[in-house]
Design a binder for these strands. Structure first.
Lengths: 342, 342
DNA sequence: ATTTTCCGTGTAAGCGCCTACATTTTGCAG
DNA sequence: CTGCAAAATGTAGGCGCTTACACGGAAAAT
């Protein structure tokens, strides 16, 4: 026990019980908001607790069968604005519900998903939030085998067997493309995200659908592959602009790539939006601090995080409710990176 | 217990013991790497455990006096690249040590630091990592009252009474300034970070010291106040460039602000680095994906995170070691945003 | 006033694991 | 072989808390 010398000083439920002249069970009841405690004793207990500085010991509480009030968050990493926004939402909502969050990264235990998940499930978290692009179906399988509550954020379960939160990716892309078309653009290029990703694929489809709906042929040479990261947006812009008939607008499947596009365009000596229009997707905070400000499709990341938490807590409370999929609306945010075609 | 139906399925130490034909104590010994277990039984236990899919129950382990293998991370939020880098380092090192991390944000329990810390200390974490700019001294006081192990990252304890990790902010700023001077610049402006922040103040001092060392007078109108965020870098650039004798180089106290400066400069129709040189500080990932690539002072953020973890684990293992302060070297990273003065 | 409820509280038995101590087994000198 | 120390393993108690159950007393019903 060298690890926690403070153990000796820890105020337990017994100390409070003694101070308040009741049994430990009563103290427990008070702190768990059980209703069968007389108001006067409840207050006596509360006061004693406050005076002694009592703070419940979580592990004991969980072990004894209480609720853990901790949920796990599994992510590949925190190193991008997209993730940070979602996590912010999660944190806020968790705060309201008085839950803590423990962070797991897929970086760890690479390969051995099964035991990692098993480990997580057996640990302190009562449930798991997954923000894992390119989620392997194996994960879901294991998770449901474990009968462990979880929610997918910005990712869906093809089997429709999981709680999940995502956004109207198709519609968002459709709207943005239509906006560009409305501005008079006909030569609209699209930089794709990571192929295979649900969100990414939907965006391509939305883009194509809008073109078709307006009788504009889909040109394959206008559709290039990116990876959702800034450098890919930058790199892919040059070949696009080197085309015999270069596009007059570029729609990047996310803001990070759009930022890269802007860099490339500037490097080509062209002006945004006068020479070319650019649209992104996500509306990360940075989108509104660039110059010109980026027109983009807002994906309610923070809200997705929040709803994810709600869905998880709901599961914890009512374990038997059937899985639900929540799809939040995106919204076109018009800023300064587009202009009507002359 | 509606919260965890899986409880019934949980494989306990007893199951393993039975399967291996030993007592639970022996199983415990095996999993705690105690040395007085015969090799043959150790293996028998391990095999049984593997077969049953045994995973230790953390709360029970902690409760019984074992090590928690969880540390807490207290941050204001995750929403910037600086923090993300540090957290990445923390995560990596924690992974090596087989520790988990639980995330606490100062956003929660605004105001009531004392009880929040008390809560944290009484929770599952064995120690706390603080990445809290503008840390109130009150925090430290409470923490040491609690005799709770903690490490400060990129922040120092004036009393020198805490374990902490930071970087050579003064030297880094000195080096960068000297580099600019070496390039022939004499009119070098500086955009400060958040005043009051240890790191920020040191950087100003380093900048001033370099100027003085080279006999260049420190001009107050060249030193403006920022807040470490991109918009402030952008905003503060305009008045600077509107000066009767505008600077030929701008040194921003961090990369985020430098990015803002670059935006502003471009908006003024000037070229980087031909018309003006720019230097940042931190070397966040983005610094190398801008165009031109940003010359900056590398602050080993990831490593700071890692060392922070090391220091914390060290404390957990040897509770009586006196506090240490670890200062990691910064390094000037020359890229493309500076040019010799014509 | 007496019986029936029900409310408020205490008692006790764990939750899964660790560890001091007791006990058995092993290794080895004599 | 015997004896004994050392190594290996088992036993039991406890970590702080929750919760089924028991129980006394007060309120409600008759």
């Amino acid at each position: 026990m060298q690890e926690r010398k403070k153990a000796s000083q820890q105020v337990t439920i017994y100390d409070v019980a003694r101070a308040a002249g009741v049994s430990d069970a009563t103290v427990s009841r008070v702190f768990n908001n059980k209703n069968n405690v007389r108001e006067s004793t409840r207050e006596r207990v509360l006061q004693a607790a406050k005076k002694l500085g009592y703070v419940a010991n979580l592990q004991a509480r969980i072990l004894a069968g209480g609720k853990s009030h901790i949920i796990g968050l599994l992510v590949p990493g925190l190193d991008n604005a997209y993730m940070a926004e979602i996590v912010r939402g999660i944190d806020i909502e968790l705060g309201h519900a008085n839950y803590e969050m423990i962070l797991y990264t897929t970086r760890r235990r690479g390969g051995n998903e099964a035991s990692y998940l098993q480990y997580i499930a057996n640990s302190l978290s009562a449930g798991l939030l997954l923000v894992v692009p390119l989620l392997s179906p194996k994960y879901l399988e294991i998770l449901s085998d474990l009968e462990y509550p979880y929610v997918l954020i910005d990712e869906i379960d093809e089997q429709n067997n999981s709680f999940s939160v995502d956004a109207t990716n198709w519609q968002g892309a459709y709207d943005a493309t239509e906006y560009l078309i409305g501005l008079g653009h006909r030569r609209i290029a699209f930089i794709k995200g990571i192929v295979g990703l649900h969100s990414s694929d939907d965006r391509v489809q939305g883009y194509k659908a809008a073109l078709k709906a307006h009788g504009i042929p889909v040109r394959d040479d206008y559709i290039v592959e990116g990876d959702y990261m800034q450098p890919s947006g930058y790199d892919k812009t040059f070949p696009l602009m080197a085309l015999p008939t270069p596009p007059t607008a570029i729609f990047a499947a996310n803001d990070h790539m759009a930022l890269g596009v802007m860099d490339a365009i500037r490097e080509l000596g062209m002006d945004i939006p006068n020479d070319i229009s650019i649209v992104g997707f996500d509306d990360i905070p940075q989108a509104s601090t660039t110059h010109p400000k980026l027109t983009t499709v807002l994906q309610p990341l923070e809200q997705m995080g929040r709803e994810g938490v709600r869905l998880l807590l709901e599961q914890l409370q009512y374990p038997d409710r059937p899985p639900r999929r929540l799809t939040l609306p995106t919204q076109l945010i018009v800023r300064d990176s587009c202009r009507p075609l002359a």
